[in-house]
Structures are given as C-alpha cells and as structure tokens.
C-alpha cells in the first residue's frame, strides 16, 4: 500500500462493501479507487473473499456424533424421531 490515503481508507472498506459507509465516505473511496490500482485490487479481492464465505457450505453434524450427544443427555429415544 503506497501511501497514507490508502491506509486511511482501509479501515472503512468493510463498511463500504457492506453498504454501511456514509455517502461522504463512499464518495471518498470511489474517488480514490479511480486513481489507485492497489486499492482497487484490495477492494475487489476483499469483496470476493466475503462472497466466497457466504457460499461456504455448513459442516454437517455426523450421525454418530449426533447420537452420542443425545445419549449424553439421556435423550436416546429422540435420536431417530425424524425418521419415524
């Protein structure tokens, strides 16, 4: 990051990408992006990073782990209730 302006704007990039930055801040960022290639790359790849995580599948709870959890609370009789 070449200069102080870039660092200064960096703190607001999440607000900017989440649509939570004020109009003045958005304008300032957009003006800077017109002339700063490095910040454009950071904004593009930060945005893509956020989007990739939105699509990340939730890890699943394995059946055996789930069964042992129900057993640990004396709820064995309910483990397979959805199937019946």
């Amino acid at each position: 990051m070449p200069n102080d302006k870039c660092e200064h704007l960096l703190d607001d990039l999440s607000f900017y990408l989440d649509g939570k930055a004020s109009e003045a801040v958005c304008a300032e960022i957009e003006r800077h992006l017109e002339t700063c290639q490095d910040c454009r790359v950071v904004v593009d790849t930060l945005n893509k990073t956020i989007l990739l995580y939105r699509d990340l599948p939730q890890p699943s709870l394995p059946d055996d782990v789930r069964s042992r959890l129900y057993q640990s609370l004396n709820l064995d009789e309910f483990v397979n209730r959805a199937d019946s």
Partner: peptide
C-alpha cells in the same frame, strides 16, 4: 420437558458443532 430438550438439540446442535469444529 424431554421433548423440548430434543427440539432444542435438533435446532441448535448443528450450529454449535459447526462453531466447535472451526
């Protein structure tokens, strides 16, 4: 209420596990 606890586990255990796993 056992049924309530089973409901509670059904609802939240996948999320708690996902957090714990990470």
């Amino acid at each position: 209420d056992k049924v309530a606890w089973a409901d509670f586990l059904d609802l939240h255990s996948p999320h708690v596990y996902a957090l714990a796993l990470r």
